[in-house]
């Protein structure tokens, strides 16, 4: 349990009469790329928000980076990065200013910040756009920048909520290269997606249906168990069992 980056046991979240997350349990190993799949409204984002300390669970236990999300939420936040479904950089600030702001509030020193910033700008080839407003960047660049900003403070775990939504296939591929890079450097990746090709890139995936985890394992094993050739079919088999509609 201590070796796991994320450890979840009977995690339960209810909003009024609606059970969004229904007693899920799983763990994610350090350095793993963990795909968190599910149809719209299956409870993925809710579960992820609990793991990030943005939402308090109704009951159950979740330990992230060695800290309990119910009682040590500030320590959890210090050790994770998060990229939300909504684009979360300031569009009215420049690339430079966004990096400086987020680096600053994560407590990077002035030197670290300067180093990280130039390294990041170089890695994303944003040299010519350093002082452009983020608003003016193409979506793909924005997403890559948002991911890099979420990684500024070298978190142990990074949570990505549909990071490649609406992005073209080439940029998507680039984005996954960045994810692999981060994983190679030892960062645990927790990612939700609707693209089944991306699911194949993950070490392990879980598929949520109606607030429960309906399947969990390596993509290869899931396909074998279901007796199908693609993750698409695995997903389809499980998702059509869903009782509740999309949100």
């Amino acid at each position: 349990m201590t070796s796991a980056a994320i450890y979840v046991e009977n995690l339960f979240k209810r909003f009024g009469k609606f059970t969004a997350v229904d007693s899920i349990s799983f763990d994610v190993q350090r350095g793993e790329i963990f795909g968190f799949l599910g149809a719209n409204g299956a409870g993925k984002t809710t579960a992820m928000r609990i793991l990030c300390g943005l939402l308090a669970p109704t009951s159950g236990k979740a330990v992230v980076a060695g800290y309990d999300v119910s009682t040590q939420v500030e320590q959890v936040k210090r050790n994770i990065g998060y990229m939300s479904q909504k684009f979360s950089l300031y569009e009215d600030l420049t690339v430079f200013e966004n990096i400086t702001f987020y680096g600053g509030i994560y407590g990077l020193t002035t030197n670290q910040l300067a180093e990280q910033r130039s390294e990041l700008i170089e890695r994303l080839s944003l040299q010519s756009e350093t002082h452009s407003l983020v608003r003016s960047l193409p979506l793909g660049w924005k997403q890559k920048l948002a991911f890099s900003v979420a990684m500024l403070h070298h978190p142990q775990i990074v949570f990505l909520d549909e990071p490649t939504g609406g992005v073209d296939p080439v940029t998507r591929r680039n984005f996954w290269d960045m994810i692999y890079d981060a994983a190679d450097r030892g960062t645990t990746i927790f990612v939700t997606t609707h693209y089944m090709d991306e699911a194949e890139y993950c070490n392990r995936v879980s598929i949520m249906v109606d607030g429960r985890i309906a399947a969990l394992g390596r993509p290869r094993d899931l396909k074998t168990n279901a007796g199908v050739a693609t993750m698409d079919e695995v997903f389809y088999q499980l998702a059509r069992e869903a009782k509740r509609g999309a949100e």
């Binding site: 990030c52 943005l54 936040k77 998060y82 479904q85 909504k86 509030i105």
Partner: peptide, 13 residues
């Protein structure tokens, strides 16, 4: 509305 507050809330600020 634009979602940046969530990004702030996930930091140790």
């Amino acid at each position: 509305e634009i979602g940046t507050i969530e990004q702030i809330n996930v930091t140790p600020i």
